[in-house]
Write a protein that binds this DNA or RNA. Structure first.
Lengths: 250, 250
DNA sequence: TTGGTTATGATTGTTTTTGATTAAAAATGA
DNA sequence: TCATTTTTAATCAAAAACAATCATAACCAA
């Protein structure tokens, strides 16, 4: 039975019962206990269920936040790897800016239990941050319906009240010549301002972003460090003399 | 039977009876007494019930803090009535301020399909507003974990960027002498500022709020209109010469 | 095919959960 | 009050579930 089939079986079982035992799944799939455990670990990471001692249970609440396509997307793992590394850079007492977007969202899971303050413009991020008990500030502004990010002049005024030790940013395009880019000019403004207000800025970008160019320029490459999961020779040689690039593999 | 299942069973039993004996739970779950005791200890810690000698009992009072759904269910109908009326006051082109809180939240359901702009400090409200396709602004600031409202100096700076045609407010206490009050001084500040910035301010308060006094004063009664579902003679005569009170019955 | 990667199932030692046992504490009733 | 009964918390050993590791099997691209 294919991995994906098993996953489907597990989720189907969970649809009918609120909680299931590992043995039930073993019986239903004829896979070994070890395999099922691995499945559960994976499905938990992808936010499809919650593991409990002895089995797994539905997770209620905010699972609907992410569309299924997003969750199962191939790049999920890359984002987690990048997010985990970025989170490891956070130090006691830091004031962090966290840009809206899915890559930066994955960082939250790995944030250390330290005394830190996080400022964000992502509505979705706030819930996750509060869940972890992190002191959270949100900048104001117009709420952009599609991305649930704060933009506009209100956001610019609002963000100017803060200063950051580190800013973790997202972008749609990373290009040797055109720098960091994003589709929405208003979002670009906010991002640019966040970088200016920060002692140290980092872009979290998986390898699919390299060579891409979106409509609005945020800043040039030399304004921020890049954290990515993979970097081919072509882009490396084009960008390496402009900024620092950290490649995280596992 | 999984731990979580047992917990569910216990809470279900408690829903039907106000108090249960340990032996009843043992019978219902086929677990040992020791295990049930451990379950009860845990559930008590998580504020789901209160242990009593021989078993467990519902805890009344403010456990409801946890589940917003339960909390709002009690006076849900009143809130809906008030919310619907308040929404009917909204006119084409209005700029609205919507205070955080459950009463104002119910207003959103009834907002007309007009070209309006809504500014809010309630994180929970934003999602509902976007769902209805309403142009939404959020003020920035520190996110208060329990209420998910924006407070603090950031919120004050942020809200000052706007002016409102109408402000719909919530309060914990409405008192002839002490005016409108709320438990948190920081929230009171934001509320006060919102009222100042608004041409017209309205407090949405169900009848349980009358005569109550919370810790922090927001403003005096004459600064805002009151919209409520019911008003007894005593409070009416005490307040009617200070402000306008609109009683909505259906 | 070959070499390398990934998925699998068995095995290991460790951790968590469980139920029984006990002595202490609380309720009961004369 | 005191003695009796019930309930409780604490302890412990057995059982269940666990993560980690490893060798094998299946898979894939060159």
């Amino acid at each position: 039975m294919l991995t994906e089939e098993r996953h489907r079986v597990i989720l189907d079982l969970l649809k009918e019962k609120d909680a299931i035992k590992i043995q039930d799944i073993v019986d239903a799939t004829n896979a070994s206990e070890s395999t099922i455990r691995r499945d559960l670990t994976q499905l938990e990471q992808e936010k499809f269920l919650k593991r409990v001692h002895g089995g797994a249970s539905k997770l209620q609440g905010k699972l609907k936040e992410l569309s299924v396509s997003e969750k199962s997307s191939k790049s999920l793992h890359e984002k987690q790897v990048i997010g985990r590394y970025a989170a490891s850079l956070v130090e006691e007492g830091d004031c962090i800016y966290l840009d809206a977007g899915t890559t930066t969202l994955s960082l939250i899971d790995y944030l250390p239990e330290k005394d830190i303050v996080v400022v964000t413009n992502g509505l979705t991020h706030v819930e996750a941050l509060l869940q972890k008990g992190i002191k959270t500030y949100m900048i104001g502004g117009h709420v952009k319906p599609v991305t649930r990010a704060m933009v506009g002049s209100g956001a610019l005024d609002s963000i100017r009240q803060y200063r950051f030790d580190k800013a973790f940013m997202g972008a749609n395009g990373v290009h040797a010549q055109y720098g960091f880019t994003t589709p929405d000019p208003e979002e670009a403004q906010v991002k640019r301002m966040a970088i200016e207000l920060s002692r140290e800025a980092m872009f979290l970008a998986d390898d699919s972003k390299f060579g891409e160019i979106a409509f609005s320029k945020i800043v040039d490459l030399d304004k921020a460090v890049i954290i990515t999961n993979n970097l081919d020779e072509e882009h490396d040689s084009a960008m390496k003399n402009q900024t620092t690039i950290k490649v995280v593999t596992t």
